[in-house]
Each structure stands twice: as C-alpha cells, then as structure tokens.
Amino acid sequence: MDKINLTIFTPTYNRGYILKNCYESLCRQINKNFIWLIVDDGSTDNTEELVNTWIKENRIKIVYIKQKNAGKHVAHNTGVLNCNTEMFVCVDSDDYLTDDAVKVIYDNWGYIKLNNSLAGMIALRGHNHQEALGTRMPKGINKCKISDLYQKYGFKGDTMMVFKTDILKRNLFPVFEGEKFVTEAVIYDKIDQNYEMMLLDKILYICEYLEDGYSRNIQEVHRKNPIGYIYFLTQRIEFAKNRSERYRAVANYLAGCWSVKYKHPIKNSNYKMLCILAFPKAIYIYIKRSIKIFFMKLKFWFD
C-alpha cells in the first residue's frame, strides 16, 4: 500500500445510532489509503463499543480517541494535533462520503501540495450524489479565498474542505473556559488571511442535518457560548479589508451582542465611533434575523 497521506476526522458525541452510515461509506471507498480518526467527545451511548467492533473487523484503518466532553472545536483541536498525515478533512458523524471521494482527493492533491499559496481544496456537499446542497462552483474560477467564494462569487450552501494539516496545526481553535462551541468560521477567517483554496465542482460529501445538530439550533448554541461568539464577531471586524466591510462587521457585531445579551458591546469595542454610526444598520440586521428565526421555528413546529 502507498503511504497514507489522508486523515478523515470525525468528531462525535452520542451518535452511535447513526455513525454506521459514515463507517460504511468509508468501507466502500475506491481508494482506502486513509486513516479514520474518531474523536469521541465524551459519549455516554454505545459509540466506544461500536468503534471497537469496527477496529476488530479491520476493513479500514481506525484510530479512536475519547476525551472529556468539551465541544466539537476542542475535539477538532485534538484531531489536528494527533494527525500524522499531510491532509486532513472533517466528516461529521451524521454525514458520509461518496464512494470515490478519497480517490478524487488524491487525484487533485499533487497540484495543491506543490502550490504554497493553497491551504487545501473545497468540494461540494450534496443532499445526494446529484443534488448539490446549494449552488455549483463559479465557472472559470479554480481557486480563491474561502470568503471570496461566498462574498465575491455568490456561492451559497455548505462545502467539504480538505486542508494541509500543517496549516491547521498553526490555526487551532481558541478555547474558552465553560464554553463548548466556537464556529468553524474563526479558523477559516484566519486561514483566509494568507491562503486560497482550490475549487472542485464535484459532490464528494453527503449531508443530513439532524434535529440534535448545531445547525438547527445555532441561535441557542450562540447564547450558551457567548464568549466564543463575540470572539468570532470581533475577529471579523479586525480582518475587514476596507471601511465598508468593517462597517458591516461592526453592525453584525452589535446585532450579535444583542442576540446573546452581551452587556456593554459599544464600551467593550475598539471601534466605539463606528459602533455608533453602524447602530441603525445593526437594528435592521437584528430585526431581520429575529423575524427569520421566528418563521424557521414556525415552519419546524408545523412540519
């Protein structure tokens, strides 16, 4: 077998009831030259028993680490720090890969590896193998920053990102005592400062959002983890490229502070005057988000 250059990382917490879907998809890979690194964030279900059974089956190479429950971002740090391959991709416990995903990653990695301006690759997520979870990649663009994909080229939806491990090791998640969530955008924004990503207009990752997942409960997650959320909003202000972008970031900061009941957002900001100027925009953003969340909850109740 060739040298293993890819780690497929899965953070999990009490997902024993569905983790098998991810496992079976990895066992179906055309190219099995990878390590499946599972970081169990303190599960109390049968996850450990299941994984030990799969390790004994020896169908794929599995490394299992169990830690005290600390949140997905801490599990991600644990995964990155225990990764010994040059590529790292996160596949959530309720999702799975297309059968050719590993092969496609290897097919494209040579170009990425030799390009020092690239941090990795962005591919598509899908509801299934044919239907993308959002738009397709912009035509005629084969690389760009993560933020530019959305803001400049109008991409909508979620993606799968494969990173150079050494870059992730230099950009770990911040950890705040008593909090168990920091958005992945904190890391993406940091990487954006120095690198671009290769774009691949192909679905490699099949995604399903469950009722117990972060995505469906993001407002409540932010309220329970306000320090990490404010850190993200503040970092967005610091990374703004121009006055217009900083104005929007400050407005979003204020609206975010109000949503998590963070006290004295203007007093605690380094941009007090800009906060005052952005106040009307922040009110608009806060009201618009509140209305959107209300109708999302209404739809959920009636579905």
Rank of each mutant, 00 (worst) to 15 (best):
T47H: 02
L200N: 07
E179H: 12
V74T: 10
K139L: 14
N82S: 11
K103M: 07
Y64F: 15
N46T: 13
I105K: 02
T10P: 10
V80S: 00
D94L: 02
D2H: 07
N128G: 09
F176E: 12
V250I: 14
I283F: 13
K263T: 08
C144M: 08
F176W: 06
G71L: 08
V221Y: 13
N242W: 10
N270V: 01
I227W: 00
E196F: 05
N84L: 10
F295H: 12
N46A: 10
K263D: 12
I191G: 04
Y96S: 11
F163A: 06
P174L: 04
V175A: 00
S244D: 15
V39N: 12
E131L: 06
E49Y: 12
D158C: 07
R246L: 03
V221F: 13
K272P: 00
H73K: 06
K190P: 00
D189S: 13
R125S: 14
A185C: 03
Y231G: 01
A123T: 14
A75K: 06
A251L: 08
Y23V: 09
K164F: 01
H76W: 11
N46K: 11
I287G: 06
G79D: 05
S290Q: 09
Y253E: 07
C207G: 09
A255T: 09
V63L: 12
D94S: 07
E177K: 14
L210N: 07
R170L: 04
Y284C: 10
N84A: 05
Y271K: 04
K281Q: 14
R125P: 00
W301N: 11
N217H: 05
C83L: 01
D212F: 02
L149A: 04
L254M: 03
Y188A: 05
T135M: 06
C27E: 14
C257W: 09
M273H: 10
T85H: 07
S43F: 08
G126C: 03
K267L: 14
N225R: 05
T7C: 06
E208W: 02
T7F: 00
Y23E: 07
D45L: 07
K292M: 05
D192T: 03
N268S: 11
K32R: 13
K267S: 11
D189C: 01
G120K: 04
S269H: 15
K145P: 03
P265M: 05
E24L: 14
N52I: 02
D41H: 05
E86M: 07
I8E: 01
T12D: 01
K299Y: 12
T12W: 01
N217S: 07
F34K: 01
K61D: 12
D107P: 11
G228I: 04
R248Y: 10
A255M: 10
L149S: 03
K241G: 02
D99G: 02
I187N: 01
Y284K: 15
L274G: 05
T159L: 11
T47Y: 03
T53L: 05
L254S: 01
A123C: 14
Y247I: 08
F295I: 09
L254Q: 01
F300N: 11
V162T: 15
L6H: 04
E238Q: 14
G178D: 12
A278E: 04
D45P: 15
L37Y: 06
S147N: 10
I285N: 08
F232G: 00
Y13P: 01
V250P: 06
I285D: 08
R28S: 15
L210P: 00
G157F: 03
N128C: 10
K20S: 14
T165W: 10
K190L: 06
V260P: 06
